[in-house]
């Protein structure tokens, strides 16, 4: 029993990341009808926003402390971050400690801007062209974005820790009546799960309860009619592209403490997220979220030792296997609507 709960919990954080990326992919696909192979790169850029924030906050002035000496007997050079100078030692240290969550503030405008530029500058010209062309051009863009990041940040993973408060683990088992130390779950993963739940809820609420969201949903269902009614649907769809980019970006920011970002992490997540979208059903937002969590949990179950000894290597291929089975038996995906991209 406790093993099962552990696996479900372990699956949640990965599932959250899949769900967030797949949500963005589906938003773009549902509104603009574009298959965006560069979405993983957006996730990766988000993660590097966190790295940048960390670097910005620890920008330091060098002062010479005449009272102390280093081991060579010279006066000690002390690095003091600007934030410490500005806000005093305690607040300053706290701000640096919270660099990763604070990076969301940086990531949202950056990602919306990138999404905007991408849509207006590139994707716009590909609405009328074949899906293969869309895949190819966004694939090229993904390579370019990835290489730009590699040029500035190098090829090695850059670790950025979570705030100190969340660094420990939660003894989840005692809450639900198990012995101590049986079910242990890192705090940050819990934070990530809660965070993604908030974001997903936010996106759904935005689409469901605002006039803007209503128009977007109408546009997803029948773009032409909405246009005939005198609504500039293109402008709203551009905004939705920015929103999808921002969702992928913040998903990347918060994932940094779980997985140190490197320049090709986006590609790994992209392939899996596509599988998630396909399993959930192309164009279905609830399907994407459901399939994200489902596949995340499934993957963590498959990596249990008991199951691995039964079917060796199953943890590596389970997601693809499920996707293949789903595509062959139910091409619409779990929650796909009839007639949407049935190939």
């Amino acid at each position: 029993m406790d093993a099962i709960i552990i696996q479900i919990l372990n699956g949640l954080d990965k599932g959250s990341a899949y769900a967030l990326i797949a949500l963005g992919l589906t938003l773009i696909f549902g509104t603009l009808g574009v298959v965006n192979f560069a979405h993983g790169a957006l996730f990766m850029i988000g993660a590097f926003c966190a790295v940048t924030m960390q670097k910005l906050l620890t920008l330091s002035t060098q002062t010479i402390d005449p009272e102390k000496v280093d081991f060579l007997g010279k006066p000690l050079v002390v690095d003091t971050p600007y934030v410490v100078n500005w806000f005093g030692p305690e607040t300053g240290a706290a701000i640096i400690d919270w660099a990763v969550p604070l990076a969301i503030l940086l990531a949202i405008p950056v990602m919306i801007l990138i999404g905007f530029v991408m849509e207006r500058g590139l994707i716009k010209h590909f609405y009328k062209r074949a899906h293969a062309d869309q895949i190819l051009v966004t694939f090229g863009l993904a390579i370019v974005l990835q290489e730009i990041i590699k040029y500035f940040y190098g090829a090695n993973p850059i670790p950025s820790p979570a705030p100190a408060v969340f660094r420990g683990s939660l003894d989840f088992g005692v809450w639900i009546g198990f012995e101590a130390n049986q079910i242990i779950y890192p705090y940050w993963r819990l934070v990530y799960f809660a965070f993604s739940a908030v974001i997903i809820g936010g996106v759904f609420a935005f689409l469901q309860f605002t006039t803007f969201g209503m128009v977007v949903r109408a546009g997803m269902a029948d773009r032409e009619t909405v246009g005939i009614l005198g609504i500039d649907i293109d402008k709203r769809f551009t905004l939705m592209f920015g929103l999808a980019a921002a969702v992928a970006g913040v998903a990347g920011v918060m994932y940094v403490p779980i997985l140190s970002p490197n320049y090709n992490m986006g590609m790994d997540f992209l392939v899996l997220s596509f599988v998630v979208v396909v399993v959930g059903g192309m164009g279905s937002l609830p399907g994407a979220v459901l399939a994200g969590f489902l596949l995340g949990i499934l993957q963590s179950f498959a990596s249990m030792n008991e199951i691995k000894s039964l079917i060796p290597g199953i943890d590596q291929i389970i997601i693809y296997l499920v996707a293949i089975i789903i595509l062959l038996t139910r091409p619409r995906g779990l929650m796909g609507r009839k007639g949407v991209m049935e190939g």
Partner: peptide
């Protein structure tokens, strides 16, 4: 066919 074919082949290759 279409993008589903691309994703299926991608899934097989990754597998």
């Amino acid at each position: 066919s279409g993008i589903y074919f691309s994703i299926l082949t991608l899934a097989f290759a990754q597998m």
